[in-house]
Design a binder for these strands. Sequence first.
DNA 1: ATAATATACAACCGATCGGTCGTTAATATA
DNA 2: TATATTAACGACCGATCGGTTGTATATTAT
Lengths: 210, 210
Amino acid sequence: MTQDGRRLRGLRSREAILEQAVGLASVEGLDGLSLGRLATATGTSKSGFFAHWRDKEQLQLDAVEWAARQWTEHVVAPALRAPAGVRRLFALHEARLTFYDDGVLPGGCFFFTVQAEFDDRPGAVRDRVARSMREWQEFIRRQVAEAVALGELAESVDPAQLAYEIDALGEMVIIHSRLHGGPDSLRHARRAVLQRLRALCPDPALLPEN
Amino acid sequence: MTQDGRRLRGLRSREAILEQAVGLASVEGLDGLSLGRLATATGTSKSGFFAHWRDKEQLQLDAVEWAARQWTEHVVAPALRAPAGVRRLFALHEARLTFYDDGVLPGGCFFFTVQAEFDDRPGAVRDRVARSMREWQEFIRRQVAEAVALGELAESVDPAQLAYEIDALGEMVIIHSRLHGGPDSLRHARRAVLQRLRALCPDPALLPEN
DNA sequence: ATAATATACAACCGATCGGTCGTTAATATA
DNA sequence: TATATTAACGACCGATCGGTTGTATATTAT
């Protein structure tokens, strides 16, 4: 298993296709994305896919996996470099906004598009997406709970409640900014969470003023 | 123009088809919705559509119009029966949550699905949807401004900012409730806006405690 | 060296897509 | 009553969809 030549080439094209798939799916969804267009976009042939994936659903599942890793890398990891507590919580929110603002994905957010697409359609893809979203919300909740435990948020804070608010305010940036353009929604989303956290934080100096 | 018989029958089927189309589009989107399935769902033939609409896009535009009227009827109108100011603002939020909770549309929210579908796709449908969303957000903003003018919200409130927050917290109910089930997101969305408004209101007694 | 494996392709399949055409019958207009 | 309209339909069109098959070839494993 020297892992080069033919095998390596397969891995490379597999990854290249997945990257393209995640980008395209962030725009048109995982089902709207057709194998034919994905083929021309990656410069390969349609039938070549079936050497890597049994059917379209397998590619969709792998695309979700790939997008989850990308999210962890671009949003979760940077936040973990901030000190635990309310600062990490806000860093998490800011990292998400930066991810959107940088245009890492052409459609803004893979998971937003795919959630809207699959929330009413039972199946393996939906289950996989739901799992990723549960893990993400659970992660936010843990950061809130940790901030409370550190005394950086009022004890009256319900972690699930605040996590919902932070996630909702962040996620809706996608729709608002893409549909009406302009940086307004980004400013609103940032400010909303910042003010909310500062109001709940005994030591607001931990957070920026604006 | 006695408006009955043949003409009337046309109007009726036109409306029946549009109602079905809006319901189906709230689940699968306006493009995912195929004319064939819409035909069988309404018990008519596919080619019969083209007596009413030139092409699929015209039907999509009319569906947006129909959904906008439905939204006005189910969400805006009930809120207008509440006294102007912060009570009307909260009534608006609650009417939206009731609309979702009652399952008026099988997919939860027509505009959510369609925004996610068209936010990256230029064209007449996107423009029409964007217009509706702008009008909706402008309406929330006016209610906020009015509450401020009435002295029912702190003067420091930025209407556009608070309107973004209320809309985001309400709209994300769709994804969260449909993907993970349960009434948690509804509770979170209601509580988030309620507490936010109470904190900004000089006379919190205008609003329910819970 | 040889057999097995894996990448990648062109050609093709049935199904479905949005849309056209010609027709029929009921209604509205004159 | 004669004449346009209008609703509605079945049959059909080219394009595209996800997927299959057979083939050529390069790389592994034995």
